[in-house]
Design a protein around this nucleic acid. Structure first.
Lengths: 246, 246
DNA sequence: CGGCAGACGTGGTCTAGACCGGACTATGAC
DNA sequence: GTCATAGTCCGGTCTAGACCACGTCTGCCG
């Protein structure tokens, strides 16, 4: 292991434990450390890298609950079997999702309006019933083939002026982040199998009653405040959802 | 806040930070702390409870990445908006899943055999192609209605004698834990919408070509070793999958 | 030779300090 | 009144120790 070179320093804004974590991650990805191999003990790493044991632990604990390492009290810390991939339970936009799959994403805006909120939406978004919501419906394409219809609903009051953006070009998440300083933290998805109705079938270029995945997602900010409620219909023949559980 | 009473002690096997975490969790659940309320600072909690700040932080950090609290540097630590529920990305058995939904789970064993592994299964389970696998197919019922067909595959070599258990009565996960000392840690699921074929339709009491959710799950132990590969078919009209993303 | 006790190394927990940069507030200069 | 500034409190990071329970190895004793 080449971990002993260049002791981490607190020069830049990058914390030391992040640097340690990065080195270990790289060592695992490069195959320098193989699955089930024991890595140096916390005390060894501490003196090897010239940082305190608590700092080493901060890196190790993070890697353990990312699934990259596992520990056995009294024995040591070991490299977990599977390769570190992008965590599949990460919150990602359609655009990011497609790029990860090696597909070329595109969007066409089907509807972009301000309407009074029905009761169920108002409840989910924690706003007054009838309060205005921005509704953005988009056809999502992957490699120029229709893949999904996604309809997002956001409280108009909280994000005024949202209607003026062109969401066929700009990611909704990017706009929220850059224009409204909203950081998306968690989302709860409800997933079910269903059949396409006539309208969906026409837009998605499917026969009627074709199998589709219906996904409802409530996204919340770091404060736990609801940001958007999305209803999406994905073509069953061209989309697989991947999820990681712990 | 009644957090100052009964300073935590290291009497039992429960770590102090767990006790602190538990108190805060209860205070939030009981409504003693309301959403977006600022909780005492780390230094205050430290002197209030008579434990060091690092120990307080260990509890707070855990609650933050469970989504119960959020922090703002320079301002303080606040209660997140949503109630703490069971984390939806938790790995749970069919039995637990149904009980959580308030349904009465039951199982009927359709097949329980040892067969040579096809190539794709061998690859996923990281065993030699053709090596024996235990195949356990079960019909899953909720409130006496057929809900899903679940077929689990496990390496026979690693879990010898698995075939002798009655899996209509016993949870596979319980048997693995108690008889083979296997702790299940992570699982990756692939979810897609599809149509039932004739055989599935008959067993699940569905018309042919009815929408179903097909789920493939690879479960791995703490060491990252594959334990089981499950292929499940859920009735689209009676099952919703819930997932939480971060 | 078999078995047991102790030594040793490991991760897990905990302490009592420290410094940093961000976010407020009160104070004062203009 | 407005604006800069210094002080103060906040979470975030880091240190250098400490004790514990657990697993493993070793060497001694019967």
């Amino acid at each position: 292991m080449s971990l002993q070179f260049e002791p981490p320093t607190r020069q830049g804004p990058t914390p030391i434990f992040e640097q340690v974590k990065g080195r270990l991650t790289r060592a695992i990805e490069d195959g320098e450390l193989v699955p089930h191999e024991r890595i140096p003990s916390e005390r060894e790493l501490s003196s090897l890298l010239g940082v305190s044991r608590m700092t080493v632990r901060q890196a190790l604990v993070a890697l353990v609950d990312e699934g990259a390492l596992y520990t056995r009290a009294g024995k040591g810390t070991f490299v977990a079997d599977r390769k570190i991939e992008q965590p599949l339970q990460r919150l990602s936009s359609f655009t990011e999702d497609m790029i990860e799959r090696g597909l070329r994403p595109a969007s066409r805006v089907l509807e972009q309006t301000v309407v009074p909120s029905p009761i169920d939406l108002a409840e989910a978004l924690e706003i007054a019933p009838g309060a205005e919501i921005v509704r953005i419906a988009r056809l999502r394409l992957a490699d120029d083939e229709p893949l999904a219809i996604e309809t997002a609903h956001l409280p108009h009051l909280r994000y005024p002026g949202l209607v003026r953006f062109d969401f066929s070009q700009h990611s909704l998440y990017d706009v929220l982040r850059t224009e409204y300083a909203v950081t998306l933290a968690t989302a709860r998805q409800t997933i079910e199998a269903s059949e396409s109705n006539a309208e969906e079938a026409a837009v998605l270029d499917l026969p009627r009653r074709a199998p589709v995945l219906r996904i409802t997602r409530l996204t919340t900010s770091g404060e736990g405040r609801p940001v958007e409620l999305v209803r999406a219909v994905y073509r069953g023949d061209r989309y697989q959802l991947k999820v990681e559980l712990r």
